[in-house]
């Protein structure tokens, strides 16, 4: 029979990075797999976030970016959130969402950053900030969206808030949504979005 037994997997090569200096060198390497390995290795250092942050700003390899973002989330802390926040302005949608998703995964550590971003003057940034709130059930994030919705004058941004509130809102969200729909009575999409959201909110 031609099937052969695989040689038992080699024990992992000893970590290629004996010290911080070697991680710093590797994260700027021309070889993406080196950079990825360095992103994982940074976790072991107190300034791991800085090591990653420095490179993330210019990194273009999708697999390396993914490794860096996963590690920022794993390290956690408001500082990791501060590194991710500027990416919400990235020209690449994939990167904007990757950052929003990572901020969401950071949970409470991202809340201060969320509070600032959701009031950003760029409506597109506010849309991405709303994504951060998705999944933060029943918390402060929902209340912030409820408070800001009445004054949101970009209708697409408001619709993004409604979209997220449909998922994370409480029975108390309903009056805010109804009020908004009344003010935009002429907009059929807003009416539909509010009706749909109302149907999805938990009952009082």
């Amino acid at each position: 029979m031609p099937l052969v037994k695989a040689p038992a997997p080699q024990t992992p090569a000893a970590p290629a990075f004996p010290d911080r200096a070697s991680v710093l060198a590797a994260i700027e390497s021309l070889d993406p797999s080196e950079r990825r390995a360095a992103a994982w290795a940074s976790r072991a250092y107190a300034d791991g976030i800085d090591i990653i942050a420095h490179r993330l700003a210019v990194e273009s390899d999708a697999a390396v970016v993914e490794a860096m973002i996963l590690n920022l989330v794993a390290i956690g802390s408001p500082k990791a959130a501060a590194v991710l926040a500027p990416l919400l302005r990235s020209g690449s949608a994939a990167r904007r969402f990757a950052a929003a998703e990572a901020l969401r995964d950071l949970g409470p550590d991202a809340l201060p950053m969320f509070d600032a971003l959701i009031r950003d003057e760029d409506p597109q940034v506010r849309i991405m900030a709303a994504e951060v709130a998705r999944g933060q059930l029943g918390g402060a994030a929902a209340q912030t969206l409820e408070r800001l919705l009445p004054d949101e004058d970009h209708v697409n941004t408001a619709c993004a808030f409604i979209d997220v509130l449909a998922e994370i809102g409480s029975a108390g969200t309903a009056p805010v949504l109804r009020h908004f729909a009344d003010r935009h009575a002429g907009n059929a999409y807003v009416r539909f979005a509010v009706d749909t959201a109302l149907a999805r909110l938990p009952a009082a």
């Binding site: 099937l3 052969v4 037994k5 695989a6 997997p9 080699q10």
Partner: peptide, 24 residues
């Protein structure tokens, strides 16, 4: 037995990076 002998079984936790790194 020939089939049994031809497969290499091992314990791996997918969520353990160190273990996964041994497979290339």
């Amino acid at each position: 037995d020939t089939l049994r002998g031809s497969i290499d079984f091992s314990r791996v936790n997918v969520s353990d990076r160190g273990q996964m790194a041994a497979f290339r």
